[in-house]
Nucleic acid binder design. Structure first.
Length: 470
RNA sequence: GGCGACGUAGCCAAGGGGUCAAAGGCGGAGGUCUGCAAAAUCUCUAUUCGAGGGUUCAAAUCCCUCCGUCGCCUCCA
């Protein structure tokens, strides 16, 4: 049984899906007006791994992640650059796919864009107006009446009257209640527009997710995920909208990941303390970044700074070296037969992830197996080595989306340049070994240092001298 | 102001009434291996879990107080 923390009930609950062995999951994606940063990447990686885990234990996962491709920030950005909104959106959707791919995030089954669903959104709003959950103001805005649904505020633990007294809510005389939120924004001059029964305008933010998730995953899917900053008002409003439309909340469970903190604040584009995914991958490697993101429980906020990223990067490199050591001997390792030890490690790994997706514990199992793989190779126990290799590379690595490349940062390209370099290095190694044979260690060490300065590390093994670039 | 989370070794981070003299990673010390290194491996590196009270046969784990950090309440993943 898999247990997850449900934001709505604030408790750890068993995952019981609508259809047996199928998990339908919707994860809120970014508004595309710039490159994605590490904060955007956390839910992407977390839910990517969660999905792989569910698949491993036998679920068929149907996953959707949206792009908000029309919004004030996109329009502002477009105006600033003197291009149209769609160019901005298209550009950063493309860049987002690029960065997601760099991070080894599998594409979801659906990546809906708001502007592809305007017709459905209009229909949904019309229905809410008909059923008296929403109203149109004289200027052509449409608003949702928050007080028409019961339990509004349950997800975020807020009480309507406390919110009102907070007086932080948008003061807008057109709204009947200050807490009402916009479903359709009437167009200001020069803004992109779509036609609607109540005038030219564009969809508000919350309605897109309700409409797209319902259309793609159905009235009540299993898991709705996203960053915890979306709990209020975004997800609260989605619940209200779905209840107005279908009489049901949109999802059975709500999973929220904690924020990435940088320099004392939440990482956010508007706070200018972002660290781009692209830069992080360049600096720490794909597996280093993923390992970092999985090193802390997904619900806790995590501080972003170099030291732990460096640690994760080193740990990833160590595992890569171990795997490389194995594949050097066995180019095409086949499938081992499971034994008690393998079952035991795998069970521990799965149990960790089954307990509210405890990735830090799962990683501890992984690192234990890495040590066992090294030991098996040290002992010359190839059969056991294959078993450990299989667990790391094909089972754990597969679920975590790591160790699927040759090495993390160092490329072992079969290019002509590499061939030349290889010949050169091998030549120097041979010279050094001749010096060693003649016990001229000073000369031998000189050559080793020379290579070391060029970031080439020599490793003397019983099978001869090897080298690696670092 | 309201709601919520957290404070565990040099750093990162699990655990969440007894099996914890507390997993794992990074770092550090020492051993094995090596001509020496490197890599790998082994041992050690928190008698203690922010501070102070309390409950209990038993607490890092439950309760209270205090100190500190952070999130949400506004666009945000």
């Amino acid at each position: 049984m898999i247990y997850i923390s449900d934001t709505l009930t604030k408790s750890k609950v068993p995952l019981e899906t609508g259809q047996p062995n199928v998990v339908k999951m919707y994860v809120c994606g970014p508004t595309v007006y710039n490159y994605i940063h590490i904060g955007n990447a956390r839910p992407m990686v977390v839910f990517d791994v969660f999905r792989r885990f569910l698949e491993f234990v036998g679920y068929k996962v149907v996953m959707a992640q949206n792009f908000t491709d029309i919004d004030d920030k996109i329009i502002n950005q477009a105006n600033e650059w003197g291009v149209d909104w769609k160019t901005v959106a298209d550009t950063f959707i493309a860049e987002c796919y690029h960065d997601a791919q760099l991070l080894g995030i599998r594409t979801a089954n659906f990546h809906p864009r708001t502007t592809d669903f305007v017709e459905d959104i209009i229909n949904a709003i019309a229905k809410m107006i008909d059923n008296d959950f929403a109203y149109v103001t004289p200027n052509g805005d449409a608003y949702f009446s928050v007080r028409k649904v019961n339990d509004y505020g349950r997800l975020s633990g807020k009480k309507l009257d406390e919110l009102r007294s907070g007086a932080r809510v948008d003061v807008n005389e057109l709204k009947i209640d200050p807490l009402d939120f916009v479903l359709w924004k009437s167009a200001k001059p020069g803004e992109p527009v779509w036609n609607s029964p109540w005038g030219k305008g564009r969809p508000g933010w919350h309605i897109e997710c309700s409409v797209m998730s319902q259309k793609l995953l159905g009235d009540m899917f299993d898991i709705h995920g996203g960053g915890e900053d979306l709990i209020f008002p975004h997800h609260e409003d989605e619940i209200a909208q779905s209840k107005a439309l279908t009489g049901k909340p949109p999802a059975r469970y709500w999973m929220h990941n904690g924020m990435i903190i940088a320099r004392g604040d939440k990482m956010s584009k508007s706070l200018r303390n972002t660290f781009m995914v692209r830069e992080a991958v360049r600096k720490f490697g794909k597996d280093g970044v993923r390992l970092f993101l999985l090193s802390k429980h997904y619900r806790s906020p995590m501080e972003f700074f170099d030291a732990p990223l460096d640690d994760s990067s080193k740990a990833a490199a160590r595992v890569h070296a171990t795997l490389y050591r194995f594949t050097e001997k066995y180019n095409y390792p086949l499938v081992p037969k499971y034994d008690e030890e393998m079952n035991d490690y795998q069970t521990r790994f799965i149990e960790a992830l089954s307990d509210d997706f405890n990735t830090p514990v799962a990683l501890s199992v992984l690192f234990n197996v890495v040590r066992e793989l090294n030991k098996a190779m040290d002992d010359g126990n190839d059969e056991r080595a294959l078993k450990m290799y299989h667990l790391i590379k094909r089972v754990f690595g597969n679920m975590l989306g790591i160790f699927d490349g040759e090495t993390d940062k160092v490329q072992r390209v079969e290019s002509e340049e590499m061939q030349t370099l290889d010949t050169l290095i091998r030549g120097i190694i041979e010279m050094r070994n001749n010096f060693r044979k003649e016990k001229q260690y000073e000369m031998a060490d000189k050559l080793r240092n020379l290579l070391g300065e060029s970031k080439i590390r020599l490793v003397d093994t019983p099978e001869g001298t090897k080298y690696e670039l670092y």
